[in-house]
Design a protein around this nucleic acid. Sequence first.
DNA 1: TGAAATGTTGGGGCG
DNA 2: ACGCCCCAACATTTC
Length: 446
Amino acid sequence: MKKPIIVWFQNDLRLSDHPALDAAAKSGHPILPVYICSPQDDHPWEPGAASRWWLHYSLLAFKKETPLVIRKGPILSALKKLVREVDAEAVYFHYQYNSQDTEILAELPSLAFHGNLLCPPGEIRTYQVFTPFFNALQKEIITQPLPKPAQLRWAKRVPSLAVGDLKLLPRIPWYKEFPWKPGEDYAQQTLKRFLKSGAKNYAKARDYPGLAGTSLLSPHLHFGEISPRQIWHAAKKYPAYIRQIAWREFSYHLLAAFPKTPLSPLRENFRTFPWKKTPRTLRLWQKGMTGFPIVDAGMRQLWHTGWMHNRVRMIVASFLVKDLLIPWQDGAKWFWDTLVDADLANNTFGWQWVAGCGADAAPYFRIFNPILQGEKFDPKGNYIRRFVPELKNLPDKFLHAPWMASPEVLQKAGIKLGVTYPKPVVDHAQARKQALEAFHRWQKKY
DNA sequence: TGAAATGTTGGGGCG
DNA sequence: ACGCCCCAACATTTC
């Protein structure tokens, strides 16, 4: 009887296109599938509440497919213990491209595989601009995804926690409205549906939050219920969509090269930028009570569904960082806690991009106008009316700037500004001017 | 993957 | 018929 191989699952909760699992299956050793939950309470990037919700159900789904052993505790000691317990031949896992990889490889009989990216960081040199990165990526040969191993021989079971023991679900069930179905099967279904109906129009439709124009794959992708390689090959025909997958790849490569960027700006001079700490205003933004309908709709979509349309992510982020001058890290932390697709690489990259301190970033003077953005990308107000229902009877003409409506129009729509819907927390034109001035003063100093 | 400010052009109203 | 003004539409520059 051969000794078991431990396949340690992390953000790769799938059976198809899983190089570590595939190699273990081909080795002829019995396989012990393992997931380890290692809460570190003081760690800023512990999975947030929405993320834990997803993980809970993703683990349940995965347990239906495998005799998954669930453990708790610091990764290294938990793995060491398991290796002793089952007299394992080795631990197989996927690189996360951080310092933990090296530690595991040094301390345990183990083998790491590339499974979570199209191309391992380091294969392509580090670019800080997307276009040359994308060109280099397209020159790489991205191999075909692996099928689910034909035969999986599982090792003898060892004690395991139940998913419920991990206490991943928040005490207050605010997530009841979540429309999501975690798990590999649903990930594949979601991809199929997108390829069948959405992908063709993606280039145009993707910018309209009121349409179902995006793939909705982000949380599945984050938890590795589907691999980027599977998506890449399946969606080859749709360049606009492939480009988005490449942005994800770009952000992963950047995070691997600059592991401190989740909290500190890539362009280090930004450390001295005079952001404003205004907790009251931050809270209004978080709750979707800024008085700017497109911003509030986005923030409420985030709260109620654990997700926000990408176009709107840019709008609300620009608003926080430029109109309110609140540190991008505060926005990143809120997204981290509330997004089911919260992903350190994507989240970090996105926020630094908006703030202007990151790679290939929007320049400081690029400031979104929340009214114009609303008019352009939610012209009929479908999106705003869905998530800010107190404005639903307001005519399109005033929907993006209710304070411009006459008292009669407001009354007819059943709106009392400052009572049923907030007055704008800032004057955008003035906020824009102040932001530009702040940037100028700061630039002159440094 | 912006938007405002400024510049240019050309058609039409009008004295 | 002509010049002048206005301003929409578009282009370019600037933040």
